[in-house]
Write a protein that binds this DNA or RNA. Structure first.
Lengths: 187, 187
DNA sequence: ACCTGAACACCGTTCAAGT
DNA sequence: ACCTGAACACCGTTCAAGT
């Protein structure tokens, strides 16, 4: 059975936003991909801001679920941390797309307030997960875990941004490896 | 004496692009700031792509000049490296703006070819400068300098992106400090 | 419930025409 | 050389009307 229109819109909007940003999202192209008319999107989402916020919210929820899945599969916190870059790598694998949080951070000035809130929440989810696992490893003390979590999140987002601009996933892998060698990420 | 229209357009376009990206650049607002009509911009730049490429080229040249200035002022390569984040910090100081290379990397899919080339060139200038100085310090061997230079560039771009989304320069400083503590940047 | 055509006001972009 | 009016294509949005 196929997706409901609302779910199809959300999925297409997410893909578009990861490739072109919130500003690059447009209802006519979106509608064409879903197989309806642009005006029909307004039945499901009252405005572009609402659609953007819904996309960002879903993106955060999906990411949170994936992080929880990693933690469920992988008992060792060091191994969990080792797997963290997967999240960003998969966006590159999926059509050289960017993390939605990164793209929207670049566009931050021009985002509706309700979208900004979701972007912050996305970053918070990532940093909390990282901080929690860093503490669990004992590699850094609890006081430093939060600080290190922010640094890791920012650095990996930067690595993805650079790899995307070169359309080169192996560059992403090499950057992550460099972070490990340098000591930013646990080896 | 005041700037020529062409220079005034370049300056205003740069500021706009660092705040709203290439996609967010618009000729009417730009023209209003310069004091001419939108159509007049096309006398100086035959298309938006040409303007974008000119802005990115100038941005790269300015950055190269600032990096050379740091090197001229500061004999010790370790001190030069210590000063590198200044480049990104100043964009944040200047109206919470993003590095043009970062914003355009996010928008990469939608960039005209001539703009893409300048974005690559900008990254290359930064990485070559970093690599050269890293080699000079002897902290890493020459073989690793290039790899580390990429990692530093990507990580600092990520730090700026995150600090901007929180409108918090002190967060940028804290992230740089974390990179030093972790060993990514020479302390 | 779900969708659409047609229209609206606006905006980025272009170009022939002005001075 | 330098600038502009006017037109064009496209956008987000609305709404009465369709099924």
């Amino acid at each position: 059975m196929s997706l409901s229109s609302k779910e199809a819109i959300l999925a297409a909007a997410r893909r578009a936003a990861q490739a072109h940003g919130y500003g690059g999202l447009n209802f006519r192209d979106l509608a064409e991909e879903v197989g309806i008319r642009a005006a029909s999107i307004y039945y499901h989402f009252p405005s572009k801001a609402d659609l953007g916020a819904a996309v960002a919210k879903r993106y955060r929820e999906d990411t949170a679920a994936r992080l929880e899945a990693i933690q469920a599969e992988t008992a060792d916190p060091l191994l969990c941390l080792h797997r963290y870059p997967e999240i960003f790598r998969q966006s590159l694998e999926n059509g050289n797309r960017l993390c939605l949080g990164s793209f929207m951070s670049a566009e931050y000035d021009d985002l509706p307030e309700m979208v900004k809130l979701q972007v912050q929440a996305f970053a918070d989810v990532n940093m909390a997960w990282l901080s929690n696992l860093l503490s669990a490893t004992g590699v850094v003390n609890t006081r430093m875990a939060e600080q290190r979590a922010r640094a890791i999140f920012a650095a990996i987002a930067g690595a993805q941004l650079m790899a995307r601009s070169r359309s080169d996933i192996s560059l992403f892998d090499a950057l992550i490896e460099s972070y490990r060698q340098a000591g930013l990420l646990p080896a």
